[in-house]
């Protein structure tokens, strides 16, 4: 595996590595070649690169046509231009016919969109896609995990969505750590005072919160959830069963993402309290770190919210 830094670079590298052996894999670009860091891919595999211009609905439709003819197209661009502008195409012409189209959305969340501001910062995608049957939703925590998630997407039959950022993510996983098919990876096991579940690029912050809590005498378990609304939540349920308080942390709107998923699992299996740390407003422009801190994702804020739940 070549060296890369960031989730977009991870996507491009995974695509390059797969295209070496799989001529069915294509990249469909709605003028997102540069944004997706896929310029080298287009140079090395010009036949496997389809440029449709700034036309996301067309990119998804064309991908549906390619998939219907037996190919495996990846469509990549900004999260909202896929899941909102081309929402209906993703639903009616990919999810409904269960076609083998893969989506990689970049600039997810405040951390992904950061300085661009609200027009290029998206925190609604998981809520939208979680209502579409047949979609597999992958939320890798960092660059290395995005690399493996993109590779996993190619081998999972049917529509798959990979949530990616813009390079501001802090790498937590080792380069060669596989993408867990169980939907959960336990990172810290300090105790069962609470279970902190993180999804996406806030894993480093959640881990830091666990250290703050530990210093305060509160011992929590921290796990990364990398598949939302998956078909095999057993290992997630097993971790949830060990605690009476769960806290979810996600750079997404409070509805429709990780918090909703875990609340559902709790309600349907073993009811317990779930505190959701997520966005309830639109964001704004700003440096990634400052934005995340300002909107409630600082390690201190995550630790305080958790401690308050336990009072």
């Amino acid at each position: 595996m070549a060296d890369f830094k960031g989730t977009r670079e991870a996507f491009a590298q995974a695509l390059l590595d797969m295209a070496e052996d799989h001529d069915k894999i294509l990249f469909v670009s709605p003028d997102s070649l540069k944004a997706m860091r896929a310029t080298k891919f287009a140079e090395l595999h010009p036949d496997q690169y389809v440029e449709v211009g700034i036309a996301e609905q067309c990119a998804v439709d064309a991908a549906a046509g390619l998939a219907a003819a037996g190919l495996i197209p990846f469509v990549g661009t900004y999260v909202g231009f896929l899941t909102m502008r081309a929402c209906e195409q993703m639903r009616t012409f990919v999810a409904y016919p269960n076609l083998n189209v893969k989506f990689v959305g970049i600039n997810a969340g405040l951390l992904g969109g950061e300085r661009e501001g609200v027009t290029h910062q998206f925190y609604e995608d998981l809520g939208i896609l979680s209502t579409m049957p047949n979609f597999t939703i992958l939320t890798p925590a960092d660059g290395p995990q995005t690399y493996h998630a993109v590779k996993a997407a190619a081998s999972i039959p049917g529509p798959v969505y990979v949530r990616a950022g813009s390079g501001r993510e802090i790498d937590v996983y080792a380069k060669d750590a596989p993408f867990s098919p169980d939907g959960i990876t336990v990172w810290k096991n300090y105790g069962t005072d609470a279970l902190l579940l993180s999804s996406g690029f806030v894993l480093d912050r959640t881990l830091a919160a666990a250290e703050i809590l530990k210093a305060q005498g509160i011992h929590v378990t921290v796990a990364d959830i990398n598949i939302l609304y998956g078909r095999n939540p057993e290992k997630i349920l097993a971790e949830m069963a060990r605690v009476s308080q769960i806290v979810t942390v996600e750079d997404h709107n409070i509805n429709g993402g990780l918090g909703s998923y875990i609340s559902r699992l709790a309600c349907e299996n073993e009811p317990k309290r779930v505190k959701r740390i997520a966005l309830t407003t639109f964001g704004e422009s700003g440096p990634a770190k400052e934005l995340a801190d300002h909107y409630g994702f600082s390690p201190e804020a995550i630790a305080k919210t958790t401690a308050d739940c336990l009072k």
Binding site: L26, D47, V50, Q57, C58, D61, A62, A63, A64, G65, L66, A67, A68, A69, G70, L71, P73, E88, Q89, T92, F93, Y96, P97
Partner: peptide, 24 residues
Amino acid sequence: DMTSGSLGNGIAIGAGMALAGKYR
């Protein structure tokens, strides 16, 4: 050959199928 009925999408999807034909 393709789900349809939500107006407007057939040409873009057909273009994808035609592209696949060229590619293969």
